[in-house]
Design a protein around this nucleic acid. Structure first.
Lengths: 295, 295
DNA sequence: CCGCACTGATGCAAAAAATGCAGCGCTATT
DNA sequence: AATAGCGCTGCATTTTTTGCATCAGTGCGG
């Protein structure tokens, strides 16, 4: 889209913070780029960059414009994908920001299933915590977000929600492994493997512990959910995770037991997109598929 | 916006149905215009026009693109108005599609009040029936719609709703003018002035009459609400109208009496905009003002 | 306090792109 | 069969964009 090149130039300047650096990325001379920016500002009726001695920086008008640029680019991409869809080609690219728990089993299976039907569609999967996921939607870096217990929901339009109780994860040989349901106090008698404080599971556990005046002492605290699962398997320790991140088929040596909802309030796994956006066909169809899969 | 000229050209070709006619509107040669369209289709990756022996016509891909073009233009206008707002200028243009009932008193007063605060803001007011109003929103020809009893509400995002009972309109000297409330059967004993069948008030009246097995016989049927009011004033006839279109201050010689809701179901006056759109600041502020005014 | 390295801006000539003109082939109407 | 309308295209011309060289300003380190 030659006529939209100026938008890419503006973004390049914004990214690199200087015309000269952006000129290299854009394969153009700094002087040419400079004049295009100036010509655009002239037409636009307002400067969009602050000229600092050390480079360029978007001013408030520029921020507003940048959001428009991103929105318009995404909408153009949607139109393209719909046009491709018209000719029956089913192309497209779906960008997903998701919680770590979706990585081991759920998303690989879903993406593979979708691509079995539409092999022309490609995917980007980015691990994001609940705050970053929302930021990704706003900056159009992701089409869909799939996160556990998102923090604040402005700009987040919920497509689907499923309750996800917190599960205890342990070796099958663990003394508690035979129980159908666990109380939090049972778990606290053993070594704990906890996810970092930025995660929803941890937040729910802390809340529950505080309510009953107990304290969570982790022998291992980690950012990696994989670590939580595997460490629990090696030692006689207890980890925590939500069902969507677990697969008893893949790990017959492990037990996954729900914590009683008397102790720990169950969280919700939310599928959503940027409020007011029209999603590309591919993203929309994929969203429908995973909504069905989540039940 | 020179870089968006190609969009205007596409719209011009769409409007006029031929390159040669569109070329005149665009102040360009047919050959140049032709080549720009071709270059665009090349870049876009798909033809957007059907070449007919009698001219050009958008194909489905073109229809999709056209909607994107309109949406992007409106969003750019919104950005501009927000940028103007940044510098404290408060410029903008608000396009309203509204029912006829809003014309005599309500909108003039509201627009005047708004412009007293923000004289840089201008307005377009277009009279539209409830179907056309929605179509106007979809094609971005209007920012806001203010209609009585809209038919179907896909694409219509409701910002505000107020109940509006059907009122009988007559001269103060009319025998019924002293009553506080009227029954429909009372009215039917007199000559009636009715709005055309495309209007919500008429639809509600017909429904009510049918329910009790009565028939509405109009001595005057008209598309003009002004005609309804004035004819009722001249003869001892009864007209019908919703409160927002009436002003007892402006017409002390006339009586406006509600029809009992036992007979005629009250309709709703709805203020709305295109689903998913971000309105320009001016339109949004004006919408808030009239929502408050409507109560 | 002075280079030095970095920034954006600008005059001018060269390169590239867009345009206008004239004419072609086609089709539906008269 | 003549005509009037359509989209398309080769070629010369005009307009726009670009690259090069250079200027002016600013902050940093010696």
């Amino acid at each position: 889209m030659r006529h939209l090149l100026i938008y890419e130039m503006i973004e390049a300047v914004h990214r690199s913070g200087s015309i000269r650096k952006a000129a290299e990325d854009t394969n153009i001379t700094a002087s040419a780029l400079n004049r295009r920016i100036q010509a655009f500002e002239e037409e636009f009726g307002s400067e969009i960059f602050e000229r600092l001695p050390r480079g360029m920086r978007l001013n408030p008008a520029g921020e507003l414009l940048l959001h428009h640029i991103r929105s318009q680019r995404q909408d153009m991409a949607r139109v393209s994908s719909q046009v491709a869809d018209l000719s029956g080609v089913r192309r497209g690219h779906v960008k997903i920001a998701c919680s770590q728990a979706l990585l081991p089993y759920f998303l690989p299976e879903q993406i593979s299933r979708y691509r079995a039907n539409f092999p022309g569609v490609t995917f980007s999967v980015n691990v994001r915590d609940r705050i970053q996921a929302e930021r990704d939607l706003v900056s159009f870096e992701s089409d869909l977000a799939l996160v556990f217990e998102p923090a604040h929901l402005v700009d987040f339009e919920i497509l689907h929600a499923v309750p996800q109780p917190v599960m205890a994860v342990m070796s099958r040989s663990h003394p508690l492994a035979i129980r159908p349901v666990l109380r939090l106090r049972d778990c606290l008698e053993y070594d704990l493997v906890l996810p970092g404080p930025q995660y929803g599971v941890r937040a729910l556990l802390e809340l529950a512990a505080a309510k009953t005046g107990q304290r969570l002492r982790a022998v291992v605290e980690t950012e990696s959910f994989e670590m939580v699962r595997h460490y629990a398997a090696f030692e006689q320790a207890i980890g925590f995770q939500i069902p969507v991140g677990l697969s008893s088929l893949a790990r017959p040596d492990m037990a996954f037991i729900p914590i009683s909802d008397k102790d720990v309030a169950g969280g919700e796994l939310l599928l959503g997109h940027l409020r007011g956006r029209t999603l590309p066909v591919a993203a929309l169809k994929f969203a429908r598929q995973i909504a069905t899969a989540l039940g």
